[in-house]
Computed example of a mutant assay.
Amino acid sequence: MLIKPDPATPEGEAIIDLAALLDGLQERTGEWPGADIVDIVGQWLGRFTFAVPAGLAPLAVGRAWVLRQWDRHADDVTLWSDEASALAALAQDVRSSWDKVAGTDGFPYRPPSDDQAVVDLYYGPDKTRGDEGYTVYPADISRHVGAPLSISLSDAEACAVVNSSAVFHPQEHPDDEGLPCIEIAGLLVFVYLDADCGAVRVSVHLDTADEQLVRADGTVPMQVEIGDATVFDNVTQQPAPMERTGWKALIRRLTRPSPPAGGGKPRQGG
């Protein structure tokens, strides 16, 4: 299958240029002299860079549970979203093989209904049974990303880069003290069910926000919406003017006309 270079991309344009240079050499000389080709290709390669991109760092974007099962015929590895799911899959496999151990060596004829119990009974405390065995362990899912040189809320491209690197931190298990959280540009947004107050709680933590997002007054521009209603907005809504202080402001307040005893507008000067 022939590959057609795309002139709309820098790489495709470079390949087309190289073909044109070699065609021009053949037209001029009637052949492809090796020395001339070396010069042409050498200059053409100068248009490329083969350096490894700097500033790439591994970013954990999630976590999976790895289930490895092996026997004489296979060595399988599968990924699961949580430990309970991995254990359930392992228990299902054990129950499908229960006939070969049922009623022998103290094994009951029917496997236990509890997933952990059936796995422990079948494999034993060492997680192996003859030439069979398994392991279950958590592993981070990572990718390499290059942090943007600048974060600007007025730059759509920079925002898209940051948005694409957002990370979700799940609660590992019911006994985990952590809470599910989304992390983006240093901001932490927690969304969870709170039994104490009987509500869905949303908590935004700004202490670790990227300094490029923090305004001169120390705040982060933010809008919070629920459905179609904006419930918080410190971007378009201007803060209330601060009351003047000092001795001039005190004199103004003391000399300001007082409203009549019956209420109404202040009396105007005559």
Rank of each mutant, 00 (worst) to 15 (best):
G264C: 05
S85G: 13
P174G: 00
A84S: 06
S142R: 02
C159P: 01
G262C: 08
R143C: 06
H73W: 15
L206R: 04
F190M: 11
T104H: 12
I184V: 15
Y122Q: 09
V231F: 03
L153S: 01
V191H: 05
F50E: 05
I16W: 03
L254N: 05
A74Q: 15
P5C: 08
D6H: 05
V224Y: 07
I37P: 00
G130I: 05
V162R: 00
R63P: 02
G178D: 01
V224I: 13
S113P: 01
V235F: 02
L213F: 05
G262L: 13
V191M: 12
F190V: 10
L121Y: 00
R110H: 12
P260E: 03
I16K: 02
A195I: 08
E13L: 15
Y123K: 04
W98K: 04
D36Q: 11
V77H: 00
I251R: 12
E243I: 12
T104I: 10
V220M: 04
E177S: 14
H144G: 06
D99K: 11
P174A: 07
A156L: 09
V224S: 05
S81K: 11
Y122E: 06
R95G: 04
D39F: 04
Y192Q: 08
D140N: 01
D114N: 14
I184K: 00
D175A: 14
R267H: 13
D207M: 09
I151V: 12
A139P: 01
P138L: 00
D210Y: 07
I184M: 10
D120I: 09
